[in-house]
């Protein structure tokens, strides 16, 4: 056991401050301390992508990041993106296309999709599949997820849905 340390960070636009054990991962901090259970842990070794969150504009594995490493950072989770309707079109497309079954991987999928579609241009199906390769899904077989993301990419490109351009970089950690 080590002494507790103070961490302060902005999570979904709100500053939070807690004394935590230094070994707590960002995933556990979000899930257990802040009760933001939309972020999931599937492998705890940075493979499956269920734990992806946005840290200072980059998508990271919260299971491979200690909470203390995120001190001072701005974190955004699926709850935050949902509440400020940043991914409403993606969520609607996933819903209509049934691009989720058990839903456990879905918040991570949405993070990857959000990051991918924040880049310029309209990704091809192959590029979408490539981008999703850090996100495991055992239920859907992926095709519906690719379809949903491709639809939003086309719609956004066509300006069907007005979407503020925001840069989200890919994958650190």
């Amino acid at each position: 056991m080590s002494d507790l340390v103070n961490v302060t960070m902005t999570v979904n636009g709100t500053e939070v401050s807690h004394s935590i054990a230094p070994r707590i991962t960002l995933a556990d901090f979000l899930r257990q301390t802040l009760e933001l259970t939309g972020t999931h842990t599937g492998c705890e070794m940075g493979v499956c992508g269920a734990c992806l969150v946005i840290l200072d504009g980059r998508v990271v594995h919260s299971c491979l990041t200690y909470a203390v490493q995120a001190s001072g950072a701005a974190i955004e989770t699926v709850e935050g993106l949902s509440e400020r309707t940043a991914i409403a079109d993606l969520q609607e497309a996933f819903h209509q296309r049934n691009a989720l079954q058990c839903g456990f991987c879905t918040p991570g999928m949405l993070m990857t999709a959000h990051a991918l579609l924040s880049q310029p241009g309209v990704p091809t199906r192959e590029e979408i599949r490539d981008a999703l390769s850090g996100n495991y899904c055992r239920c859907t077989g992926y095709e519906a997820i690719v379809d949903a993301i491709a639809k939003v990419a086309r719609d956004r490109d066509a300006g069907v849905i007005a979407q503020a351009s925001e840069e989200v970089g890919a994958w650190a950690c």
Partner: peptide
């Protein structure tokens, strides 16, 4: 589509 999928998409699943 599945009505109960919406909460999963919003990160409000309860596993």
């Amino acid at each position: 589509p599945r009505p109960n999928a919406k909460r999963l998409l919003a990160g409000r699943g309860r596993y």
